[in-house]
Nucleic acid binder design. Structure first.
Lengths: 155, 155
DNA sequence: TTTTCTGCAAATGCTTTGCATGGGA
DNA sequence: TCCCATGCAAAGCATTTGCAGAAAA
């Protein structure tokens, strides 16, 4: 994982380049996305921002996420069940491993990924530009907890 | 690709098992999904059904797709830009290769995929149950057409 | 002071649902 | 005949947009 503080500085410098303003709400959203603990949803970001700035609206969260996507500083993970989640820590395409039990999303290392894209290009003649790779399963913590019948707690 | 005729028969027998009815509209939707040429969207399915049954409503298309998903006979490919597409020919998780130019979606063979899931399990302790793998790029036909400035035509 | 940002509410766009009518089996 | 399926319209939901007032710079 990238250092959240460095990511925050990167985001801030992109904003300064474009002469965009650093409001308290915006800064709070940036901090949450720079960390991207567990890959938060819009609702989760909204709730966290509201702790410090209770008047923050959902629209503001959406607008800031849209801005960061446009700047290439946040990655959107769209799921069909209406639960989009975001990653501002590593805002470029990379594989995700989703626990179906506790909903945590982790970023695995995957050295064999290069072999896959090579095989695809060679086989199909495609010029591969991007990808979206999600694996679903049960994390080791939830496998151990299986007997207790509840998902593993987030740290 | 699975034989579309065999896929259609498989779908029909699932419906008969549950004593569900074979209406003309339903049969038309089944045929389109059994073939899944290019992985159609809801709108594309609707238009094709309307050729033979002009009164068919969007709601009917949605209801039948939901039924097939429930029966495990159709796979939904959700994209964030509000363009879900469906595969009833291979209704189980498998990699897709999406051309960003002509929007065609193809199903590549990918022998190196097994290595990837093995690496993931070993590295993270996850029990991998499913996946969603999409690669985005430009197909070879569209690469050739690039000078003409328009996407390759579907066959 | 200027211009962007916020926050509210209304508008979107896709999908689902309720219900009366139609039509398989 | 019995119910499931269709088709219409209304409802849902996440997200986007318009706009007036608030607040960065």
């Amino acid at each position: 994982m990238a250092d959240p503080e460095i990511r925050l500085q990167e985001m801030l410098s992109k904003l300064k380049d474009r002469a965009l303003r650093i409001t308290p709400q915006r800064l709070a959203i940036l901090r949450i996305l720079a960390l991207s603990a567990g890959h938060p949803s819009v609702e989760q970001i909204h709730e966290k921002v509201r702790v410090d700035f209770p008047t923050t609206s959902l629209a503001t969260v959406y607008k800031n996420i849209a801005l960061l996507k446009e700047l290439g500083e946040a990655l959107e993970l769209g799921f069909t069940d209406g639960s989009n989640r975001y990653d501002g820590n590593r805002p470029y395409p990379h594989p995700h491993l989703v626990c179906l039990r506790c909903k945590e999303i982790i970023d695995p290392d995957l050295s064999s990924l290069a072999d896959v894209t090579a095989e695809l290009s060679q086989e199909t003649g495609f010029l591969i530009l991007s990808h979206r790779l999600d694996f679903f399963g049960i994390c080791s913590a939830c496998q151990s907890m299986e007997k207790q019948g509840e998902p593993a707690k987030k740290k």
